[in-house]
Simulated scan of single mutants.
Amino acid sequence: MKSDIYTATRVGVIGVGAMGRPVVDRLHGRGFDVAVHVRRNEIKADLSAQGVTLEPDIASLCKGRDFIIVYVYSEEQTRTLCLEDGLVDAMDRGAILIIHTTVGAKTVQDIGERAQSRGVKVVDAGGAWGPSYTALGEMNLMVGGDPADVAKCMPVFATYAYPIHHIGPLGSGMNMKLINNAVLGVHLQLASEVLRIARDLGMDGHRLLRGLTYCTGGSTAMRFMETAVTEERFWEAGGSFLYKDLKVVEEFAAQQELDLGMIGKMNQPLIERLAEEFSSPHA
Results as ranks from 00 to 15, higher is better:
Val36Ile: 11
Asn41Gly: 03
Tyr6Ile: 01
Val13Ile: 15
Glu42Pro: 03
Glu42Gly: 03
Arg40Ser: 10
Lys2Trp: 01
Asp4Gly: 02
Asp33Glu: 12
Val36Glu: 05
Val38Ser: 06
Met1Asp: 00
Ser3Asn: 14
Ile14His: 03
Arg21Ser: 11
Ile43Gly: 03
Val38Ile: 11
Val38Ala: 11
Pro22Phe: 12
His28Gly: 11
Thr9Gly: 00
Val38Thr: 15
Gly29Met: 13
Asp4Lys: 08
Val13Asn: 02
Gly15Cys: 14
Gly17Cys: 12
Asp46Thr: 08
Leu27Phe: 10
Val13His: 04
Met19Ser: 15
Asp25Pro: 07
Val36His: 05
Arg26Thr: 11
Gly29His: 13
Gly17Met: 12
Arg21Asp: 14
Ile5Ser: 07
Val36Gln: 04
His28Ser: 13
Asp46Trp: 08
His37Asn: 15
Ala45Tyr: 03
Gly29Arg: 05
Ala35Val: 02
Thr7Gln: 03
Gly29Leu: 10
Gly31Lys: 04
Arg21Trp: 06
Arg30Gln: 15
Leu27Cys: 09
Ile43Ala: 14
Asp46Ser: 12
Arg39Phe: 10
Lys44Phe: 07
Val11Ser: 03
Arg10Phe: 00
Asn41Thr: 13
Val36Ser: 09
Ala18Trp: 02
Ile14Cys: 13
Arg21Tyr: 14
Lys2Met: 00
Met19Gly: 11
Gly12Gln: 01
Thr7Val: 01
Val11Arg: 05
Leu47Phe: 06
Asp46Cys: 02
Arg30Asn: 13
Ala35Gln: 06
Val24Leu: 11
Asp46Lys: 06
Arg21Ala: 11
Val13Glu: 02
Gly12Phe: 02
Ala35Ser: 14
Met1Gly: 01
Val13Cys: 14
Gly31Val: 05
Arg40Phe: 05
Arg30Leu: 14
Asp33Arg: 09
Asp46Met: 11
Ala8His: 02
Val23Asp: 08
Asp4Asn: 10
Glu42Arg: 08
Arg30Cys: 10
Val34Leu: 02
Arg40Lys: 12
Val24Met: 15
Val16Cys: 14
Thr7Arg: 03
His37Asp: 09
Met19Pro: 13
Val24Pro: 15
Asp33Phe: 05
Val38Trp: 07
Asp25Met: 14
Ser3Phe: 10
Leu27Val: 08
Glu42Cys: 02
Lys44Asp: 05
Gly12Leu: 00
Ile14Trp: 08
Ile5Ala: 05
Thr7Pro: 00
Met19His: 13
Val11Glu: 03
Val38Pro: 07
Ala8Thr: 04
Arg39Lys: 12
Ala18Gly: 03
Leu47Lys: 06
Ser3Ala: 15
Val16Trp: 10
Gly17Tyr: 12
Ile43Asp: 10
Gly20Arg: 12
Arg21Thr: 09
Arg10Ala: 01
Thr9Tyr: 00
Met1Ile: 00
Gly17Phe: 08
Lys2Cys: 01
Tyr6Cys: 12
Thr7Lys: 03
Leu27Glu: 13
Thr9Ser: 01
Arg10Asp: 00
Lys2Pro: 02
Thr7Tyr: 01
Val11Ile: 14
Gly29Cys: 10
His37Tyr: 15
Phe32Val: 04
Arg21Gln: 13
Arg10Gln: 05
Val16Ala: 05
Arg26Lys: 15
